[in-house]
Design a protein around this nucleic acid. Structure first.
Lengths: 122, 122
DNA sequence: CCGTATCCAATCGGATACTG
DNA sequence: CAGTATCCGATTGGATACGG
């Protein structure tokens, strides 16, 4: 069976959309080194709201990337962990992470250059 | 200099956001094999509107990923091509593409499983 | 602690129409 | 052909409040 992301109706398009979700990448990265609790993830990822974190986690569980384990304790404890499939994604996403860190300087420079030329054109 | 995508104000966050843009990935992929024209890209990527294509291309040029070359012909011809930086991103994004194609089946199965269990719970 | 529910502002993105 | 401009519906996501 073949998948073609260019096709609007191909499910891979949905997958790329998911990765495209800015939060998915960060959540997956945050779980590379082992399971974490709900609040831990939220703290690690600066700026995500509780609602969005909850939504994103749920859909990642649904897609088989994460497992959710609730312990019957007081106070309650819930841990999220990557599945094998999730780990696989994490590896891929790690390339993105590395790329962003390595090339951010070039991008910033390109932007400055672009904006300057544009301003000079007036 | 260090970058931390977890920090809300870190520019790498913006970079990941850009990659997160569903269209960026597809546009970059469409240019892997060489320069293409505006309409070509739009045709290859099923479902993108002219407006969004235009916007996305412009910001990719600004970020130094793409070059835009306009030829003084009638009818006009404009070609977009990856810069070295863009090629670099393309390689990284190719991993995503491959990942999506290879694991789409598993994701689909996980979803079906998840929805079934959820339905049975009622 | 770990969420869900609701409201609402802002952004996104499609459709359409119009220029160089 | 390669865009830009405008309108507008749909989606997103934050803030807040509340429940298990």
């Amino acid at each position: 069976m073949e998948f073609d992301p260019n096709d609007r109706d191909c499910p891979t398009r949905q997958l790329l959309d998911r990765i495209g979700d800015q939060w998915t990448v960060l959540i997956v990265l945050s779980l590379r080194d082992g399971p974490r609790r709900f609040t831990e993830i939220g703290t690690w990822i600066n700026g995500i709201s509780q609602k969005v974190l909850s939504q994103t986690l749920r859909s990642l569980v649904r897609d088989g990337m994460l497992t959710r384990t609730a312990y019957a304790e007081v106070p309650p404890r819930v841990e999220y962990a990557l599945t094998p499939l999730g780990h696989n994604l994490a590896e891929t996403v790690t390339y993105l992470d590395r790329w962003a860190r390595e090339h951010m300087g070039e991008v910033l420079a390109a932007r400055a250059e672009f904006d300057q030329v544009k301003a000079a054109a007036r």
